[in-house]
Design a protein around this nucleic acid. Structure first.
Lengths: 187, 187
DNA sequence: TGACAACTGGAATGCTCATTTCACATAATC
DNA sequence: GATTATGTGAAATGAGCATTCCAGTTGTCA
């Protein structure tokens, strides 16, 4: 095994790690922020060096923060698939996905050039779940079959992203997107 | 009048101005470039200082470059409104808009924090033209009336942008977007 | 309580950029 | 062809940023 005997961490290091993560998460939901290490450090009440060290770099910190936010969303997608019909799951989940993106649009706005492996993996899981929903909804005759599956998931993902990009992201806009998208996806 | 008697420009300055503009325009259509002054200068075969001076700053240069690209698109929207029915104009123009965004997606990817007044003005003109199309298409019974006009234009704009953001922007994806969007917009 | 390894944060470093400077080059005008 | 205002670009400047250094602080454990 490669489980290195990790040296025990000091209590303040553990606490600061949590403070840094909380601050980064909070900033992800705030529009118009710069999402710099300095800003995260100030929000957390720490020095910039401490924030960087806590996770081994800015990328790793944000990867963790975004993953924490994304994980329950992915889990809910899986739960919906188990609990209800694919068509119903698709409808419910799309609404949730759009709301999520609208609430955390800094996720898409500020994370351009960063390397976020955990987040990428979760996104893949999410796409897979949505594909399953669409596949089932097609069998139920609720979604058109003349457009490639991968194209539809891209379309859904980009649409949710598009809502988040609008200034400001409004509920009315989100509802309109959802309506047009779902109507447009019918056979 | 405030037409200051502008001093005549030297021939090489005029030529370099054009070279800088051409280089910037060319880079706007290339995916994955950094769109730095250095990159534009290299493409133009000029020094960075010359590129900056030619338009009084990077922002002004890119504003001019993007405007040049956008202007015929806006003009075509107006022409379509004059030449054909709003419904037909909407269908034709949406296709063109999506193609344009797909071909020049650096426009949306790299111009985040810049101040581009001329481009913004053209975008407003474009939105106005699309609003007119939708308004007419509604009267023809071709577009649903249960969603606010401004919401629909935002939706269209963001959709075109969404296609451009896909990697890589494909014709298949563009067609799918157009199909779903138009079907979803029907009454 | 003392000793020491772990941790902290202000300052220094090292990048990427746009922009400015200035010694040199060159169009324009005679 | 000589003069001169205008233009050029390599190098300097400065701003914003993540990351690292290190002298000083603080948990931890005996």
């Amino acid at each position: 095994m490669s489980t290195a005997t990790e040296p025990p961490r000091r209590a303040d290091a553990v606490r600061n790690r949590r403070l840094a993560l909380d601050a980064a998460t909070a900033l992800l939901t705030e529009p118009g922020v710069s999402l710099t290490v300095e800003a995260i450090a100030k929000k957390a009440g720490l020095g910039a060096a401490t924030v960087v060290r806590a996770f081994g770099g800015k990328d790793a910190l944000l990867d963790t923060a975004v993953s924490r936010l994304l994980e329950p969303v992915v889990q809910h997608a899986r739960d919906l698939l188990a609990e209800t019909t694919p068509t119903q799951a698709l409808r419910i989940f799309l609404r949730e996905l759009i709301a999520f993106q609208a609430a955390h649009y800094a996720i898409n706005d500020q994370l351009g050039g960063l390397d976020l492996p955990a987040t990428t993996a979760l996104r893949t899981d999410l796409v897979r779940a949505v594909e399953e929903m669409i596949d089932g909804a097609r069998r139920d005759g609720a979604v058109r079959t003349d457009i490639d599956l991968a194209i539809i998931t891209t379309l859904i993902g980009q649409t949710a992203l598009a809502v988040a990009r609008a200034q400001p992201p409004s509920q009315e806009l989100a509802d309109a997107y959802l309506t047009v998208l779902l109507d447009g996806l019918r056979p």
